[in-house]
């Protein structure tokens, strides 16, 4: 591959500082973070992801998956090393982040667009698609505070997937609305993947990962244990959990697939 990577991690490490109490935190304001206890969430990670790839990220809780995703979405920053991401990232993680509950659904479409750095014209173009996808009917012109949590999530999802991202980050633990809408979401995600965007997929379910991703990164305690073919990665993953058997239809012991077609 002589294409340049769309996401690139170079020797990235991330430490979270663990303050014992609020006094320590106050002190840290003035003396810096050197003296305090730290938790290393990522250790010397180097990854390159190329345009059009679908990459699964697997690992147990606390392996560093969320930290990795947060760096890609630009929310948190590495302690050492560097992260470079080229293009728009749509993260199906915090769907309702940035909503203002006093403003209407329609206003919030624009607000969310602004927050993500898009302009009026671009949002106007996408507005009909978003409204249609969210299926909110007349509620689109009501303040978001009157929405149920399902409606909020639907609106959030509709905005995020319609922003035509270059990179799509999906956390499978995501659940939006009822079964019919969930099915619609999965269809939409698959159609986005088909357009050739770069996809990062986080899951506990071996099966969904195998469905979507050709390549898979296995994280354990902040380190990349395996990076390569999905089948091989899953084998290593299950081995490390002491659950290795033959890979077969019933070799999906952890978690449950969210939605099988």
């Amino acid at each position: 591959m002589n294409q340049s990577p769309i996401i690139s991690f170079a020797n990235v490490s991330k430490e979270y500082v663990l303050y014992k109490n609020d006094q320590e935190r106050f002190k840290a304001l003035f003396v810096g973070n050197k003296k305090f206890k730290k938790h290393q969430a990522l250790k010397d990670i180097s990854i390159n992801i190329f345009p059009g790839e679908s990459v699964g990220i697997i690992g147990d809780n606390g392996a560093g998956k969320s930290t990795l995703l947060k760096m890609i979405t630009g929310v948190t920053f590495p302690t050492t090393g560097s992260v470079s991401v080229i293009g728009n990232v749509a993260a199906l993680l915090e769907l309702t982040a940035g909503f203002s509950s006093e403003m209407t659904g329609r206003e919030n479409i624009y607000l969310k667009g602004y927050i993500l750095g898009h302009n009026d014209d671009y949002m106007k173009q996408l507005e009909p698609d978003i409204i249609e996808f969210a299926e909110l009917g007349d509620y689109i012109d009501q303040p978001v505070r009157t929405y149920s949590s399902g409606m909020r999530a639907r609106l959030g999802f509709a905005i995020n997937v319609n922003l035509k991202p270059d990179i799509l980050v999906i956390d499978e633990a995501l659940s939006v609305g009822d079964a019919t809408f969930r099915k619609k979401c999965h269809k939409k995600i698959n159609s986005i993947i088909a357009t050739g965007v770069t996809v990062l997929f986080v899951s506990h379910s071996a099966e969904s990962v195998r469905d979507i991703c050709k390549r898979c990164i296995f994280l354990k305690k902040g380190k990349v244990v395996f990076d390569g073919e999905t089948d091989a990665a899953l084998r290593v993953y299950l081995e490390s959990k002491g659950q290795v058997k033959k890979m077969g239809p019933n070799a999906v012991p952890i978690g449950k697939p969210l939605n099988k077609k």
Binding site: S100, E102, M103, L111, Y114, I115, G117
Partner: peptide
């Protein structure tokens, strides 16, 4: 390049205050 967003967000902030 963020001035438009700042303006809109300030409007929403004002609405929030007197909701």
């Amino acid at each position: 390049g963020f001035s438009k967003q700042i303006f809109l967000l300030s409007k929403s902030e004002l609405k929030k205050t007197y909701k």
